[in-house]
Design a protein around this nucleic acid. Sequence first.
DNA 1: ACAATGCTTCGGCTACCATCGAAGCATGAA
DNA 2: TTCATGCTTCGATGGTAGCCGAAGCATTGT
Lengths: 232, 232
Amino acid sequence: MKSGPDIALVASLVGDPARANMLTALMNGRALTASELAQEAGITPQTASSHLAKLEAGGLVEPEKQGRHRYYRLTDDDVAGVLEGLAGLAARTGHMRVRTGPKDPALRRARICYDHLAGDLGVQMLDSLRERHLVKQKKQEIELTAEGERFLARHLQISPDMLSHPRRPVCKACLDWSERRHHLAGTLGAAMMQRFAELKWAARDPTPGSRVVNFTRAGEKQFAALFGNGKD
Amino acid sequence: MKSGPDIALVASLVGDPARANMLTALMNGRALTASELAQEAGITPQTASSHLAKLEAGGLVEPEKQGRHRYYRLTDDDVAGVLEGLAGLAARTGHMRVRTGPKDPALRRARICYDHLAGDLGVQMLDSLRERHLVKQKKQEIELTAEGERFLARHLQISPDMLSHPRRPVCKACLDWSERRHHLAGTLGAAMMQRFAELKWAARDPTPGSRVVNFTRAGEKQFAALFGNGKD
DNA sequence: ACAATGCTTCGGCTACCATCGAAGCATGAA
DNA sequence: TTCATGCTTCGATGGTAGCCGAAGCATTGT
């Protein structure tokens, strides 16, 4: 009659330090993989998996499968709002948290995600394509329009028959690690990245293991001309 | 560097079912005694005491001593807001809570608190006195003004020398059980209640153990004329 | 096909914390 | 004063949940 899980259930989810660390890591809107969240919370992947399953059951986070990764994000702004409120209450009692700053700026700017472009520029590129109706995006589904095909042929010498693959889609939305948004994956994403390299617009950083992509001065200009949003 | 109590601490406070029950019982703004909260949570007083100490240390509730009772209330609206948010998230996942309805309406309307009037009418009376500057209230301190003394003498035949007592203040703010607000205690509160009875305006319910105060039809009219707020 | 990576499930261990009995203060009443 | 009530502190107990090692799926790449 009077008992029941109610707020205690969801509050206890946030009440565990490991889960709280995960949730605060997700507060900026970015989606993180299970492994990254485990590292963020300072626990092993198997423990993190258990926590994430509970958070998902409690409706606080939502998973999105992406290849062999599994990205998690906060369910919606309501969750973020409650977390903000809790943080506010905690701050009043004198428990401030040191905010972990952004990592390597170059990595955030442009990097390789498998074989396609990710980072700020990658997200910006998909934004531009979508805005100019060169692609149509519906959730994770992305479709190349006829207008888009002409655009690719004219400016990047990419023809549709180069993009067909038995098991891989032409276009796919891929969750960006540094931004909260999607960037373009699939055979088209890979082909575009390859073309950027061939045109000497950009090249992977020679440092072994680095995923940074360095744009040349001319390449950045050309890229901005094609996919610029007017801000830089 | 990255760890710290932060939101996990305050969330874990709400995360315990017993504490959550206490907090939800306080959500309507009323202040409850430690014993009442213990009963509300279905635990023994000593366990409740431990919980309340933690909630107080966490800044979620604030105590107010009142005789041998100890009233607890939510610290402020921010706390209530966060609890509301948590309840909202919990409701989405299908964990609705059966809201414990208001108890006996007559008890909420008017009742005896020790020896003075409490309930809706008791709160309304102190409101009226304060509004018309017959008393001055500063936190829990209440002082009778010269204007107030004249008012009491004229309408209720209560003189200041009737109110002096070696160990009891004339006026005192007493937390109301059903309302969130204060009502008037002290020798004045007792004297006024006694006068109401003598004037046949009201009488304690004859049921043994009942704290209900029944107003007569005429008494309610007179009371409203003196302390009415225009709403009834 | 095989190997590698990312994540999950299972089992046992450990530590924490809610809970209550008993006793100790504090306040108010007789 | 002495008694009663309300609340707190102390100590011991027990249940629960976080944690990790090892093994098991799933997906991708060679």
